[in-house]
């Protein structure tokens, strides 16, 4: 990191003014990014029929209404179920794929990584359309499992990234030693690799859960009957404009937040620390 202090040819006062402007700008950008979320959270507690100023008082009423709205609650349950399925599927496939990358001596092995990651880069609109028409043709629509399979195509690369980062500091020699002593690949995976990356697996489970939890676009296309929370919300947005949506939004936001921070603390930060050592 270059020495910030040594500025040539500028009077000190000009420097700190320029710096001040920069910091103010940073603050503005952060505000820009966070403002809507802050507004949503704030208004979810606002005792007013309109999700806006003026502030009419603190209340939990919108959360109550949310709890009483059967459609929304069902959407919540469906979301949780769906996200759990996506989490399990994505993490399992991610794990075995990471194992392959560790064992293989194929020089183009990162091609596999590219293949696995590509689906996550497609615009969701296209992905949703494609997956829906596929399921429609196969006759598998309206099924939660089908949606989970579709969403896992996005979850797998995330899971892989987390587990891989956790395993970068781990010496592969003991795995080879295990094979040398007679272990099968499955044994090496379950008895040697997994015990050394528990937190990575946990982090992957959390992160891929968030992927399924947040996902809207593909869900909207695929689900006909058992809609998830985001989809349900979208439907409701079109009709009555009720502040309880704020409550929903806040809940969704904080859930994602906690899970992501959880994944970071459990898996990514220890991996980064170890890499820095």
């Amino acid at each position: 990191m270059s020495s910030i202090g040594a500025h040539a040819g500028q009077p000190p006062r000009q420097r700190s003014v320029a710096k001040g402007i920069l910091f103010v700008y940073m603050g503005l950008v952060i505000a820009f990014i966070f403002m809507p979320i802050a507004a949503m959270v704030a208004f979810s507690f606002n005792d007013s029929g309109i999700p806006s100023l003026p502030w009419e008082g603190f209340t939990f009423r919108w959360y109550e209404e949310f709890a009483n709205d059967a459609a929304l609650v069902e959407g919540l349950q469906n979301s949780i179920l769906l996200a759990s399925m996506v989490s399990v599927i994505s993490t399992s496939i991610a794990l075995v794929t990471v194992y392959f990358l560790r064992r293989t001596r194929w020089r183009q092995k990162e091609l596999l990584t590219a293949w696995v990651t590509a689906p996550a880069l497609i615009p969701l609109l296209m992905a949703g359309l494609a997956i829906f028409t596929f399921f429609d043709l196969v006759g598998w629509t309206g099924s939660r499992i089908a949606l989970a399979c579709g969403l896992s195509t996005i979850g797998i690369p995330f899971g892989m990234a987390v587990i891989r980062s956790q395993l970068t500091g781990v010496d592969p020699a003991p795995e080879e030693a295990a094979i040398n002593l007679g272990a099968s690949h499955w044994t090496v995976l379950t008895r040697i690799v997994v015990p050394q990356c528990w937190s990575g697996i946990a982090g992957a489970l959390l992160l891929t859960f968030v992927v399924g939890w947040d996902e809207f676009a593909i869900s909207w296309f695929v689900t006909q009957f058992e809609t998830t929370l985001p989809v349900q919300t979208y439907e409701q947005l079109g009709s009555a404009f009720s502040p309880k949506i704020n409550a929903v939004g806040t809940i969704v936001f904080f859930t994602s937040l906690c899970l992501t921070v959880g994944a970071y603390l459990v898996a990514l930060r220890p991996a980064l620390r170890r890499a820095g050592r």
């Binding site: 003991p174 295990a178 040398n180 050394q196």
Partner: peptide, 26 residues
């Protein structure tokens, strides 16, 4: 895994999550 040619490694390659006996018994 089927060759019965046990190796002794420069980096020892011990299983970090097992005990001494766990390693030897593996």
């Amino acid at each position: 895994r089927n060759r019965k040619t046990p190796l002794v490694w420069q980096s020892f390659a011990l299983f970090p999550h097992l005990t001494v006996r766990g390693n030897v018994e593996f």
